[in-house]
Simulated scan of single mutants.
Amino acid sequence: MSSTVHNVHERALPVPASVVGRLVDRIGAADDPLWPVPAWMPMRFDRPLAVGADGGHGPIRYHVTGYEPGRRVELTFHARTGLIGGHALEVEERGPRTCLLRHRLAARPVGRMRLLWPALVRVCHDAVIEHLLDNAERAVTGAIAVPVRYPWRARLAVGMKSVRVRDVPAPTAATLLHDSIERPDLADAYSLRVPPGTTTDPHDWAAAVFRNPPRVVVALLRLRNRLVTTIGVERSDASDFDTIARTDNEVLLGTNAGHLTFRSSVLVQPDLGGTTITVATLVAARSRAGRAYLAAVRLVHPLVVRAMLRHAGRTAVAPWRSTGRA
């Protein structure tokens, strides 16, 4: 039989307990200042915070079994979560101008959670709660003395859940793209869905995808520039990704080179569950050299775009550490 896990995290804060209590009262709300999004799926309940409210974050489900406004929220796990017990977030007054924010978990892992807890869930839980305490410290002081750094297993878990690139049809909402090239020789689109809390400005995502590529893509572009002159193709540079047009939810980038016309759209579509970013590309060859070049590019283009979009998503979610300053 598995034993009960006792896990405690706490942070002394240099403000009255009532100030931190107001933050705790917003846990699970749309404007929750504590829960660490977008690195993790948001905590949500089926009603305002009160005894009986049901919800959780991602696959971890629980319901409110105790609530003292401004002081304490107690949550009991659903049996299907694999944890028998509960956890609580509480504020303890330590004086007129200081308090302690504490998270306590006491639960017995059952079923597959007996393996998952020591292998992965514990390290993710510790990262989430320390990040939550960082958010509380930043909210009341404007900075964090020692921001939490995510261990590699927590980073892996965030990446697996939050940064999945999919091959999709070019979205009809990408109107700038569809009006840019009538008869493309190459057309594809890839999408990424990230949790709530990331930017919804398409210009930000365009910069993240095309102005900050992963190192492997930078190396491939350098190799490309060394090879293409042998077939009469121009070298590429940052101007290949100049912004041509934009709307509130789409940015169109591209260039008109001698060998081809290139257009790429970054479309951002937010909803209540998160944000979908789609990078769609159209290319039309303009010469024999362009057609030869495009025949080779088809082989690596999907890998490059996926890598760039995945890297942008990981950078936006940023699970490596919490932000130190407001």
Rank of each mutant, 00 (worst) to 15 (best):
M1Q: 02
S2G: 06
H9R: 12
H9Y: 11
P14Y: 08
P14A: 10
A17G: 11
V20Y: 03
D25T: 00
G28H: 03
G28A: 09
D32T: 04
W35V: 04
W35G: 04
P36Q: 10
V37L: 12
W40A: 09
W40C: 07
M41W: 06
P42G: 12
R44G: 10
R47L: 09
P48C: 13
V51Q: 13
G52M: 04
G56H: 05
G58D: 07
P59K: 04
R61C: 12
R61S: 14
Y62L: 07
T65F: 13
E68S: 14
P69G: 12
R71G: 09
L75R: 01
T76E: 14
H78D: 15
R80G: 12
R80E: 15
L83M: 14
G86K: 03
V91D: 05
R94D: 15
L101K: 07
H103S: 09
R108Y: 01
V110D: 06
M113G: 01
L116P: 02
A119K: 10
I129S: 02
I129V: 15
H131F: 08
A136L: 05
A139Q: 05
A139Y: 03
V140E: 02
A154D: 05
A154C: 10
R155Y: 04
G159W: 04
G159H: 02
V163L: 07
V165H: 07
R166G: 08
V168D: 10
P169K: 00
P171F: 03
A174G: 13
A174P: 09
T175C: 12
S180A: 15
I181R: 12
E182A: 15
R183V: 14
R183D: 13
P184Q: 10
P184C: 11
A189T: 03
A189S: 12
Y190V: 02
Y190F: 12
S191V: 04
L192A: 08
R193T: 14
T199R: 03
T199S: 15
T200L: 08
D204W: 03
D204Q: 04
D204H: 09
A207D: 14
F210R: 04
R211P: 05
R211T: 10
R215P: 02
V218T: 09
A219N: 04
L220T: 00
L227R: 01
V228D: 10
G232E: 08
G232F: 02
V233D: 05
R235V: 13
A238T: 07
A238S: 13
A245I: 04
A245K: 11
T247E: 12
D248E: 15
D248A: 15
N249H: 12
L253A: 14
L253T: 08
G254L: 03
N256D: 13
A257V: 05
A257Q: 05
A257P: 00
F262N: 09
F262D: 07
R263W: 06
S265C: 13
V266K: 00
Q269P: 03
D271M: 11
G274P: 06
T281L: 02
L282E: 03
Y293P: 01
Y293F: 15
A295K: 03
V297Y: 08
L299T: 10
L299V: 15
H301I: 06
P302M: 01
P302Q: 00
V304Q: 02
V304Y: 02
M308A: 10
L309T: 00
V317I: 14
G324T: 08
A326F: 02
